[in-house]
Write a protein that binds this DNA or RNA. Structure first.
Lengths: 196, 196
DNA sequence: CGGGAGATTGATTCCAGTCAAAGGCGGTGG
DNA sequence: CCACCGCCTTTGACTGGAATCAATCTCCCG
């Protein structure tokens, strides 16, 4: 997360994004740095036949969509707001200048990009090789880790459809697999709510 | 690619890697920066049931395995040499010092990490959503682009098994799909050799 | 010429996708 | 307070396509 006063100094604007509003679309050229102040943004790719694959979710303090901006490419995914959100929006040129004048920001960004790469490597390994149950498990473990509740049982605040889009399966498959997993005591389901 | 004299200055060593030799294994802590001088290195992850997924191939001038090193994590994949290769090996500490003293290297590394992220986003979109034929097509297009022969027909120097490991399919499926694709004139097969 | 690696083929299985239909919950407005 | 609606969840039956398994085949190489 980049300090807000610095962002403002280089020309960042605050922007309110309504629920379901798009911030950019797959195929657009990446021209801005975005950082969430408050809210929740989903990044997802869509295939020809209309199926969507969630590339990531970003909340307070997270930035998103940097890679294409850094290499002046088009977005491989769209960004949509899950609820009313507020974000900083900083144009590429201001961003570049900021990098030059703040070495520590550039270094942090490097670490961030490295960790994104790392996560994506792990993710694609899971997605390709593993059986259905493991994919879902990987998603749950990931979520829990990110939330910082390493051990205790927590509620998973996603619909089955959202989970499906994340792991690249159909809703029905997710439902059936989760049911099996709850028999096996791998997860807990109560009142249709999922705990892990 | 980082200049060899700079690498040497920070303590990089040249190392000869025999065909099939491993440079690191999945799960090892990442302690070194590696850059290929000559040869070909394959990065791949293995799932419990022994199936392997190729994360990338690296040849002359490419570096590999940086993300886990930068964030002090374990490797999510193993690195194995496809033939007798020569590489530079530079310890993390020397690497960090080099970054501090060469701003342009850090900046290039940032761009490299961003582009790796970008490629991985695109790849995972392909892998999840698309049908078999499209996955293989994406692989071929990717290879051709990287080779810099945008238009003319080139020979694809991979075995069916290697392609399968890249796109996450079984050999037989790759063979059958390629055959269909050759009927459709999407690829050309002659003497079991594949052209695209 | 024999051996081995990769390529190919055919038969079969299995599992996620698809389609269609209910079921249940929460929220809204009358 | 209740009826209705829309969204999510669940279930069952069926389908299709990739994985699996088991043989061969072909080419290259020593």
């Amino acid at each position: 997360m980049i300090d807000s006063s610095i962002l403002m100094h280089y020309g960042a604007l605050q922007k309110i994004i309504e629920k379901d509003e798009f911030i950019f679309h797959e195929g657009d050229y990446a021209k801005y740095y975005f950082q969430v102040i408050r809210g929740k943004i989903k990044l997802f790719s869509t295939s020809e036949d209309g199926k969507s694959f969630t590339q990531g979710m970003f909340s307070d303090g997270d930035s998103f969509g940097e890679p294409p901006m850094l290499i002046r490419e088009r977005y491989p995914s769209s960004a949509q707001s899950m609820n009313r959100s507020i974000i900083y929006k900083l144009h590429e040129s201001g961003f570049q200048q900021m990098l030059e004048e703040h070495r520590e920001i550039e270094h942090n960004l490097l670490l961030l990009m490295a960790s994104r790469c790392y996560v994506k490597s792990v993710t694609s390994r899971e997605l390709i090789n593993q059986k259905t149950e493991h994919r879902i498990m990987a998603f749950l473990i990931d979520y829990k880790r990110k939330k910082g509740h390493p051990s205790s049982r927590i509620h998973i605040p996603f619909t089955r459809q959202e989970i499906a889009d994340f792991v690249g399966l159909r809703v029905e498959t997710v439902i059936r697999t989760l049911k099996t997993m709850s028999y096996l005591k791998l997860v807990h389901i109560e009142d249709r709510k999922l705990y892990f």
